[in-house]
Structures are given as structure tokens and as C-alpha cells.
Amino acid sequence: MAEVHIIGQIIGAREFPKQEVFCKWHLQIGNNWRVIEGKKEGQTQVSSSQFTEACNWSYPIDIHLATAGIKGWPKIYVEVYHLDWLGRAHLFGYGLITIPTSPGRHILNCYTWRPTGNLRDRVVEYFLGGGQYIKYPDLIFSSEKRYKMSTEAMGVVIFELDLILRNFNNYGVEY
């Protein structure tokens, strides 16, 4: 049994069109993987910044995983939402990053995007707010079906992760 510790933070978001954003995240792992300790999903607070463009969350991540194979290496999936002045949450972006495979400290940028609809949808969105959602989020994880979507670039979510790998040497894995 090899083990992986993922310790770190979701530092924050930048380059989103508006402030007051929050993010839901969860850890995607393959069938060989099990969570020993720690929460594998969560939600940050709503954050906005008075002086800069960036929103800071500093949301802690601390997960201990066990694995019986490299296949299905953990990925972090994020959904970023914007909370408007009426208390409605609008989707601002989906993002997916692979946890690095080398131990040590990593600063990772998660590039997010959101689906765009047709002209009518955009007109509706302009006047009423809201946005397009993906009905089946499986689409995001399967690289084969993804090409059908049309999307637009949104902001960047920044992760700072420290990785500890353990016992991989016993199985001839070099990282």
C-alpha cells in the first residue's frame, strides 16, 4: 500500500470578471484509491477584495490517501460561483487539475472556463443574470465527450499544495 498526503491551501482566485466568488471543490480519485483521513470535498467562503482584483480564500486542504496503483492519480475538480447582491449564485467556471506526481511544494494554477450558450441564452443572461450550467458534470471528466462544448475562458484558481509520497519505492515507482 502506497500513501499520498496532500496538504495545502486553495489560495484564492484571480482574473474573474467580478468579486464575491466562492468555490466548491472535490477530489477525483480512481477505483484503486481510498481516502484514509481528511475531507475530500468542501466549499470555501465567499470572498472579495477591497484593494486588488484577487480574492483570497486560504481554504485548507489536508488529505491522506492510500492506493494500490498509479492509475487514477488524484485530480481536483473545482466549481467557482459568484454570489450577487440578491443572494443568487451564478456559475463562474469549471476547472480540473491533476495533483503533481513529484513530492514537494507546488503552486498550481487551475484555469477555469464556463459553457456559453447560443445567442438567445446570451441575451437572457445579459438582462437577467445567471449563466449556463452543465447538466451532467461527467462531461468535464471524460476527455472524449468534451469537444462538443463551447466555452469561454474565466479566471484562475490558485492552489498551493505540499505533497508527501510514501512507500512508492517498495513497488518500483520512481517519481
Binding site: 519505492n169 515507482v173 520512481e174
Partner: peptide
């Protein structure tokens, strides 16, 4: 990200 695995690397 690249990872190698082979029996040649097993320490024992």
C-alpha cells in the same frame, strides 16, 4: 507529470 514504474527500481 511523469512517473516510472518497473521492478528494476524496487529497492530490495
Amino acid at each position: 507529470n511523469v512517473i516510472h514504474q518497473s521492478q528494476a527500481f524496487i529497492e530490495n
